[in-house]
Simulated assay, not measured.
Amino acid sequence: MARPAPAHPFVPDPAAARKRLLGERGETIAARHLVGRGMVVLDRNWRCDAGEIDLVLRDGRVLVICEVKTRSSTDYGAPLEAVDRRKADRLRRLGARWLRAHDHHVDDVRIDLVGVLAPPGRPVEVEHVEGIG
């Protein structure tokens, strides 16, 4: 059985494009959900050499660093199961980098997670976890 030829580097991978679009949709849904709870979006998809923060928000005088995980099904687990202790530690480091790069005065920094389950043709489910360990 012949193997398929590798994709040309300039030809977009349809699966990767779908995954990227699903992630963008999830971040938009999460941002709307959090704004609806009274938070203010300060930044989206902030990047530095150490990584990326999906959403940076202000909740009163608290800076919220938010990781968004979006899935179209639970075949490979619930969205929030994808965040482990190592990822949470990296988010803390990224939050400190974001604060150094921006002129914001806050009383505290909190790491939140938002899981978005967006199955095709079905209602979207949003799960928000405040202040992960």
Rank of each mutant, 00 (worst) to 15 (best):
K69V: 00
V11G: 08
I29H: 08
F10M: 14
D43W: 02
R58F: 03
L42V: 10
R71D: 00
N45H: 09
A96K: 10
R86G: 10
A17V: 12
G131N: 10
A88C: 10
G115R: 05
R20Y: 11
R86C: 01
D75M: 06
I132S: 04
I132F: 05
E130R: 11
A30R: 01
V64D: 07
R85L: 09
L117H: 00
D112T: 00
D13K: 05
G36W: 10
R92W: 14
G51Q: 10
A2N: 15
I111E: 07
R97F: 11
R71H: 00
T74P: 03
A118I: 06
G131E: 07
L80V: 09
L21D: 12
L34R: 10
R44G: 00
T74W: 01
L113A: 03
P12S: 10
R61I: 08
H33T: 14
R58G: 07
P12L: 14
R122K: 06
A30E: 06
A78M: 05
L80D: 09
E27N: 07
L42T: 14
G115W: 05
E127M: 08
K69E: 05
F10I: 08
G36A: 05
V106C: 07
I53W: 00
H33K: 09
W98N: 03
V41M: 03
R32E: 15
